[in-house]
Design a protein around this nucleic acid. Structure first.
Lengths: 106, 106
DNA sequence: AGTGCGTGCAACTTCAGAGTTGCACGAGCA
DNA sequence: TGCTCGTGCAACTCTGAAGTTGCACGCACT
């Protein structure tokens, strides 16, 4: 298996609220309080999600004066995408082999 | 945007037992009972996971005599991978634009 | 026909995590 | 120098998901 563990990334991407957060951060860097103002959850909930996302390597904290803004990191997503692509291709390759065998038999 | 629609797929991929199931199905098609014999959980638990995976489009039921075998579908995985790649590229593109602005100002 | 294996449905327990409220701390602005 | 705004930590509730046991149904071989 490749270096970084994918499981935390999947767990992080499984929650809908975290996708909303990521969607906002995809437009511009925002602080936890700023995100709380745009989403229907409290700042503390946002903070927990941001900690989880940072742990998964999907966002990065950036100090801006006295507040802490968060930045969306595309690298981890691309990394995960490539891993998924490889696994999916492997499955389809097995399927293609089975189909080929079935046609040869007939 | 098909962004938030990805959440169910990742919810399906977030569980470790489901990854074990997918790993087994990646080798060959198996029924719920056969999977239960290879994994340390009961058949009913397996059945629930299979229903979830089928709902997410990651697995497909195939009738084989009186039993129902399940097949891993790589298409959904590739589809998800491409969506992730696109989103990640979008984020990095914005970052690159910001960096360019900072360099022009200096 | 009868029987067994595989499947499906339902109730129950357990536990992680999503969200809330409340309060305390501390760095930045006027 | 105050004082405000943003952040961090802790305890609590509550919903949903994972897993179990138990039982009933049905198709498929003998």
């Amino acid at each position: 298996m490749s270096g970084p563990a994918l499981a935390p990334v999947f767990a992080a991407l499984a929650d809908d609220t975290r996708w909303q957060i990521l969607a906002e951060l995809g437009r511009c860097d925002l602080s936890a309080s700023a995100l709380a103002a745009r989403l229907p959850v409290t700042r503390q909930a946002i903070a927990k999600h941001l900690a989880l996302l940072a742990e998964a390597g999907l966002v990065e904290p950036v100090r801006a004066g006295r507040e802490i803004r968060y930045r969306a990191l595309g690298a981890r997503l691309s990394e995960t995408a490539r891993a998924l692509e490889a696994i999916g291709a492997e499955w389809d390759r097995r399927l293609a082999a089975i189909k080929r065998l079935a046609e040869e038999r007939s």
